[in-house]
Simulated assay, not measured.
Amino acid sequence: MDLFDDLPEPTQNSGPVSAPAPQSTIKEEEEKKEEGRRIKRKLEDAESHTAKKEGERGEIKKVCKEGLPVLKGYVAARRGEREEMQDAHVLMPDLSSCLSALPSQVSRVSYFAVFDGHGGARASQFAAEHLHLNLAKKFPSGDPENLDKLIKKCLLDTFRQTDEDFLKKASSQKPAWKDGSTATCVLVVDDTVYVANLGDSRAVLCRLEAAAEEQKKSVTLALSKEHNPTIYEERMRIQRAGGTVRDGRVLGVLEVSRSIGDGQYKRCGVISTPDLRRCQLTTNDRFIILACDGLFKVFSAEEAVKFVLNIMQERSVEQKPGLTEEDVRFEVACQQLASEAVKRGCADNVTVILVTIRF
């Protein structure tokens, strides 16, 4: 999976400012006016030609955008054996309504996210309510040349802003809130998936690839990276900040090394900077599973994908009004996947989002 690469900074042509010209003679002024009129006519002709070309390119763009994937999200949440549900989630197949304007080369933006709270549900709920709004405010617009880099910066700024806003609110309470939350967000810009994640919630993609005898086999692609204090780079950052890792936890307590909230651990090297990954969707892609660690404590990523595929291949399915047979199968698969995690002994909250991909 391709990680973001830093793109070169846009170049700007800037030169020295010319000094004021000396006063011209009347003849020179007339010649300059005539020259100005000729330049103006040329510019008008050029603008007319450019507008025509832009119109042609617009038609081409419209044709190209017809092949975009159609995304639909399903969600299942189980409290497990916990006293309260501390997970939160967001499904927005069309984020455009929150954006003031889309970049000229973008037709649609979708957003799906899961937040796994700890120490309470306030950080996860806050992130679910505010992160996509901060994202919408910072999302690039106009006609940017380096859209990938701008989206990367937008995601980084969004996570930082959401964390700062929650910590400010948490510290103003009496007693101060000590909640924290993981965050795994899937942003789909036309046919490109951007995944930003903190902590141990995960996103995986099911892709079907050609195999022998014209059959297709499923391939499971990781779209996120786990953050816990036992990972070398994470532990080194925590120790450099003056923190310790005991029993695989920050200060022997916190299981994750990156999160939103957790103000008492931010001085110990716990950060809110997400890992970012980008993936181009293809016609072989079937679905994305986005889930908290409650699912992946009892399922491997490959097992979860195969579980969904097996339900999709079952013969009988109960029809529901207004839904296609495939819609019903995906809904059933999402619900049964979450239920199976509880049956397998997961005592934690379990939230599963299944995002279907149709070209």
Rank of each mutant, 00 (worst) to 15 (best):
V17D: 10
K153L: 06
E331Q: 14
F159M: 00
C346R: 01
L251C: 15
P175N: 02
P229S: 02
Q173T: 06
V245F: 07
N349D: 02
T182A: 02
H130R: 11
S14V: 14
V219E: 14
E44F: 10
E255Q: 13
Q239M: 14
E59C: 02
S272W: 05
L71W: 15
P16Q: 12
F112V: 01
F166A: 00
Y194R: 01
A196E: 01
L223F: 12
F112D: 08
E81N: 15
E30Q: 11
R277C: 11
M92R: 09
E234K: 04
E302W: 02
K266H: 01
G294M: 02
T192W: 05
C268D: 05
L7Y: 06
Q173N: 07
R246M: 08
V195R: 02
A46C: 04
R258K: 06
A241H: 01
C206R: 03
A222V: 02
F166D: 00
L102E: 06
L295V: 04
I26S: 07
D285V: 03
D45T: 03
S18L: 15
K225L: 04
K52S: 09
S259M: 02
H130I: 00
I39P: 07
F166E: 00
K138G: 07
E83N: 15
K216A: 10
A101Q: 14
E226G: 09
G263D: 03
R202S: 05
C268R: 04
Q280N: 11
T50V: 11
Y111V: 00
T192R: 13
A210K: 14
E331K: 13
L295F: 07
D200V: 09
R344P: 13
G199M: 04
G80I: 10
P10F: 03
K168H: 07
T25G: 10
T273K: 12
H130W: 13
L290P: 07
A347P: 15
K42N: 07
L43Q: 10
E28W: 00
Q86K: 13
K138S: 14
T282E: 04
D45S: 06
C64E: 15
M236F: 03
R246P: 03
N228Q: 05
D94A: 05
D45Y: 07
T25L: 01
K137Q: 11
G180L: 00
K306C: 12
D87H: 05
C292D: 08
K216Q: 15
E303T: 07
I238N: 00
R57I: 11
G55T: 15
R160K: 15
K52W: 08
E35N: 09
H89A: 14
E34M: 04
S224A: 02
